[in-house]
Design a binder for these strands. Sequence first.
DNA 1: TACTTATATATAAGAAAATTATATATTAAT
DNA 2: ATTAATATATAATTTTCTTATATATAAGTA
Lengths: 109, 109
Amino acid sequence: MKTRKEFLSGTLSTIILGLLKENDKMYGYEICQVTKQRTNNEIVLTMGAIYPSLYKLEKEGYIKSSKEIVNGRSRKYYSLNPTTINDIDNRIASLLNFSQNITNLLKIS
Amino acid sequence: MKTRKEFLSGTLSTIILGLLKENDKMYGYEICQVTKQRTNNEIVLTMGAIYPSLYKLEKEGYIKSSKEIVNGRSRKYYSLNPTTINDIDNRIASLLNFSQNITNLLKIS
DNA sequence: TACTTATATATAAGAAAATTATATATTAAT
DNA sequence: ATTAATATATAATTTTCTTATATATAAGTA
């Protein structure tokens, strides 16, 4: 069951932060791949969404980036900014909580 | 834990359909109240969001409305259009599935 | 060799959907 | 008389994503 596009709205940046919390450092393309694999191809993040979202998170101070050359290709790795970890934890917890609320609200019908 | 506003983006119309599936007929204000109560004040739908969303769902043929006067006040009741029940069931199932994917994706970290 | 697929980032134009603010009106409670 | 609760409506703005496009390298295949 492919996820309807609109559901992803607003959750993208928190998904990114959640994966970065778990993975020390990741690059944009990798975040898309991991998300796809871990959700059985149901949540598909697009390039046009992920990169602007990463820039915004960096501009807001939640993450920081560093460029590396790997196998002759340039990669831009991102990692969490530890000074904002409380904010980040709250965002992730809030999204998990929202998901639980949605389930409670709709599974009854 | 109050839900961050952005998470609601894109899910509102499916929440409405989910509640209408369960409740035969409801009016906009009631949908807001029920959602608030059932989520311990965490999911708060706003008036500015709910009414335009109801109009759109009606225009798209998913729901139909009828006005009633109750206690001297006008109420606009909405109910599901049975001809679109398959679409509606798919939307609700897809949102529940999305919530499960989010949980699987983020609860690990 | 040439072509395609996969990897990898970037950004502009447009659309969709919500937020915020405002307006109106009645009933109930203080 | 005033405030809070009930109830609907809509305009302006902002945010955020989709879609499309552009660039570039590596690996696999025909």
